[in-house]
C-alpha cells in the first residue's frame, strides 16, 4: 500500500452538542487525488476545515505527515501549515492586494528570498494556472473561474505537499469547470502533489478522483470508499447508487 500522508483517526466533529460527523477513520495516500463527497449538509466542509486545522475535533486526531494538526500550537502549527495549501470555496483572495501580491504573500512571510526572486516564483505560479497578464488586477476585477485559479496559485505558493480544495467547481460553467479539472490533473502529475478535494460535481469526480469517500448525513459517517466508477457500478447501497447515477428513488426503482 502507498505511503499514508494524512491519517484521520476516531474523528468526531461537533458544534456544541450537535454532532456533525461521528467517529470516522480514513487515510489519504501520498500523491493521490482524494475526494470527499456527499449530499448537502453532511459535513464535507466541516471535515475539510478540521483537516486544515481551523477547528478542533470533538474527539480523535488528524495527523498531517505524522504531525497532529489539531493539537499543534504556535511555531509547530505553522510548520505543519507550511506544508499544506488551501483554496477556499469563495477564493478568499485578499481584496486589498493585487493578484500577484496575494501569491507573493506566503513567500514574503516565510522565505528569505529577495524581492525579485519572490516576484519570479509568484509569476510562475500564476502562469501555471493560466493567469499571466492578470497579475496586477485586483481580485474584484476577476471572474469566478479566475478567482478560483488565483486562489489555487496562492495555495501553491510555497509548493506544499498537500493541496486542499473546497468545492473548486462550485458556481463555474461546465467548460471552466472542466478546465479546472484538467489543471488539477496536470498539477498532480507534474508536481506530485496530494489533492484533497471537497465537491459534489459528478463530472469532476469522474475526471479527477483516484479515490473518494462519501459521507452520509443520517449515519454521520462514511458510507462508501473507493474508486468512483467502481462504486457507481458495484455499490449496493442505494444512496451511493443514487448519487453516482444522479437518480431519484423512482428512477432507480423503474
Amino acid at each position: 500500500m502507498a505511503e499514508t500522508i494524512i491519517n484521520v483517526k476516531d474523528f468526531t466533529a461537533a458544534y456544541g452538542d450537535n454532532v456533525i460527523i461521528d467517529n470516522i477513520n480514513f487515510d489519504v495516500y501520498k500523491g493521490e487525488k482524494f475526494i470527499i463527497l456527499g449530499g448537502s449538509g453532511c459535513g464535507k466542509s466541516t471535515l475539510l476545515k478540521h483537516m486544515i486545522g481551523l477547528y478542533r475535533p470533538a474527539n480523535g486526531s488528524i495527523l498531517i505527515e505524522g504531525e497532529n494538526i489539531s493539537k499543534a500550537e504556535g511555531q509547530e502549527r505553522i510548520e505543519i501549515l507550511k506544508n499544506i495549501g488551501v483554496a477556499y470555496q469563495l477564493g478568499a483572495l485578499f481584496g486589498s492586494m493585487s493578484v500577484l501580491e496575494n501569491v507573493r504573500l506566503p513567500l514574503e512571510e516565510y522565505t528569505d528570498l529577495n524581492n525579485d526572486s519572490i516576484d519570479l516564483i509568484a509569476r510562475m505560479k500564476l502562469n501555471i494556472v493560466g493567469l499571466t497578464g492578470s497579475e496586477d488586477k485586483s481580485p474584484s476585477e476577476l471572474s469566478g473561474g479566475m478567482i478560483k485559479r488565483a486562489a489555487l496559485a496562492r495555495a501553491m505558493a510555497l509548493d506544499p505537499d498537500i493541496l486542499f480544495l473546497d468545492e473548486p467547481s462550485a458556481g463555474l460553467d461546465p467548460i471552466t469547470s472542466a478546465e479546472l479539472d484538467q489543471l488539477i490533473n496536470q498539477l498532480a502529475k507534474s508536481l506530485g502533489v496530494t489533492f484533497v478535494i471537497v465537491t459534489h460535481e459528478l463530472n469532476s469526480i469522474y475526471n479527477i478522483a483516484d479515490r473518494v469517500i462519501m459521507l452520509d448525513k443520517s449515519t454521520k459517517g462514511i458510507i462508501a470508499t473507493g474508486d468512483p466508477e467502481y462504486l457507481r457500478d458495484n455499490s449496493e447501497i442505494p444512496i451511493v447508487q443514487k448519487f453516482f447515477k444522479r437518480q431519484t428513488d423512482e428512477q432507480l426503482g423503474g
Binding site: 476545515k49 486544515i52 486545522g53 481551523l54 502549527r77 505553522i78 501549515l81 507550511k82 499544506i84 488551501v86 477556499y88 470555496q89 469563495l90 477564493g91 478568499a92 483572495l93 485578499f94 481584496g95 504573500l105 506566503p106 512571510e109 516565510y110
Partner: peptide, 17 residues
C-alpha cells in the same frame, strides 16, 4: 467583517498568519 464572511480570515489562519 467582510473578510471573515469571505473566508479571508480563515485563509490567513491556514497560511499560519
Amino acid at each position: 467583517g467582510t473578510m471573515k464572511v469571505n473566508e479571508e480570515l480563515d485563509a490567513l489562519d491556514t497560511m499560519g498568519l
